[in-house]
Design a protein around this nucleic acid. Structure first.
Lengths: 297, 297
DNA sequence: GCAATATCTTCGAAATATCTGATATGTCGA
DNA sequence: TCGACATATCAGATATTTCGAAGATATTGC
């Protein structure tokens, strides 16, 4: 393994890009300008490439430089994370836990677990990100969360099964599908389906067997609104619509077969066995809340 | 961002663990023993933790130390990779391209593309890894390949659609399923299904709707063998069994409905837009071979 | 077109961090 | 208790990084 370039040198390169120049970078890092110049040159000569070209009196990133910049930035973040996690591991509760939970996971339970954590460790801050489809997976891969509730466990991570979510096909009582008696899956295809848009950067179309027409909604109340107005039908998680089912404002579609679908949710720690104390505690609380979901707060 | 610890210091820690002691680490890194001691102590004081405890006259990793060790090892690898990719980017063709292709992808086409690459850049070495199910995804996430043909594109990566693979349900002519006339999917459940085992570290059961009994095979000829002997049925990619279908040693099951399934394969560059010249060339060759699959070599 | 300004480079000297070699401290086994 | 072994510590040597000032080059304003 080579590692001719030190972290400080990478940091210099990054600062030059972020601050928009050698002088500004020097300021930001609290060093002299020539130190920056020296560090960047060292990278260039060691690797035999040019990271910047002088465009007029301004330094401009080359293609290669841009590549290095992005990768080095990740490298530094990673390095910082390692140091932090080390410090945390010795101090008991970490100061921040980031939870990313798929929107399918009942909010009630997530909040309940967070409350439990707050009682145990009041000084630990919490960031709660609600995600859709691949969003939770992405949070995991980018290390943007410490505890993740996701429908898919990426390879290389350990997932604990949390719960099974039941989806039912629903539509407003006045929707034409409710006039036809027993329905087959074929009947659904002819109608407009309301689906949730992926919150990941990369938009994956959710895999539900394709209706001809589909409208997509970002997560939030908007899809429910559209359902209530009879704009289409949807496969919705049971917990999301049980209020409306009781109230009668939505009704399950009378499907002959395949009237239910299931999805599974898993609990994953981003740091695996090295998850911090608070992360672990939160994870256990989530699992507990799934074992006996009655004990609401 | 902190980064109080330099890469060299992490390297010292790693060497101590790998070589089994400060003295051995010093030897391995070509430095004096006190330099190692100094570096490790610096880590410990900067982070306020203990990485090693003296157990008798031997240094032993603490829990925290173990965590640091593993993470630091990844960090160093990452750093090395960045430097290499930089060097490569300036030298035209990179010396090595690693291709990970799902076994569903026709070998013919992969080899054909590799041959094209070899003609263009004879000095570029190739590593070809055949993967199953999540294996290709894992190769991507762990950065164990530069060009990947996978059935699933992890969030955050850009995938180019390469081809659609048709699966058909097949069994040997003598298999009981062939005696029953038209079959429903229900009929299949009662019979033994032969599936391919995931090559990823984490074993995911492939998602095919569950038969009651399933036997799993690692990739290779073994499943075909079992099929030929009438040990069960399988969903097999068309290209894998067309020889046997022509020869009559396997026959498609006469399913009333759902007699075909489809999977899609995507081309992904691990380094996105910064893929090297050879990686890009290989990717383009793969795409070309999918556009006109006739021009075999 | 010319001076003033902004920006990066270069260079020798100074500051700092790291390394070496010798020695100290502590453990294990006989 | 002694000798072999393993890490810790210390003082001086070495290497690297940094600084400040002067130099080079392009932009700006007049």
């Amino acid at each position: 393994m080579s590692t001719k370039i030190s972290l400080d040198q990478w940091q210099a390169l990054i600062a030059v890009v972020d601050e928009g120049g050698y002088a500004a970078a020097a300021e930001a890092l609290g060093k002299s300008q020539s130190a920056i110049s020296y560090a960047v040159q060292k990278i260039e000569t060691e690797l035999g490439i040019r990271a910047f070209t002088l465009e007029g009196r301004r330094a401009k990133l080359t293609e290669t430089g841009d590549m290095l910049y992005r990768q080095a930035k990740l490298l530094l973040e990673e390095a910082g994370r390692i140091e932090n996690s080390a410090i945390q591991s010795s101090h008991g509760w970490e100061p921040l836990v980031r939870l990313a939970a798929d929107a399918l996971f009942p909010r009630q339970q997530a909040l309940c677990a967070l409350v439990t954590l707050a009682e145990e460790s009041p000084l630990t801050r919490v960031e709660f990100q609600e995600t859709v489809l691949s969003g939770s997976e992405e949070a995991l891969l980018r290390h943007e969360a410490d505890v993740v509730v996701t429908g898919r466990v990426p390879p290389g991570f350990m997932g604990d099964h949390l719960m099974r979510v039941r989806f039912i096909a629903v539509a407003a009582p006045g929707h034409p599908l409710h006039q036809k008696g027993e329905l087959s899956l074929e009947d659904l295809r002819a109608h407009r389906q309301l689906v949730i848009r992926d919150s990941g950067k990369r938009r994956l179309d959710s895999g539900w067997l394709g209706a001809e027409q589909r409208w997509t909604f970002s997560y939030g109340g908007s899809r429910r609104e559209a359902l209530l107005r009879g704009l289409g039908f949807a496969w919705a998680p049971e917990t999301e619509v049980d209020g409306d089912l009781e109230a009668g404002t939505l009704q399950p579609l009378p499907l002959k077969e395949g009237g239910e679908r299931y999805g599974d949710l898993y609990l994953v720690y981003a740091d695996g066995q090295y998850a911090g104390r608070a992360a672990r505690f939160l994870g256990e609380s989530l699992k507990a809340s799934c074992r006996n979901p009655d004990t609401d707060h």
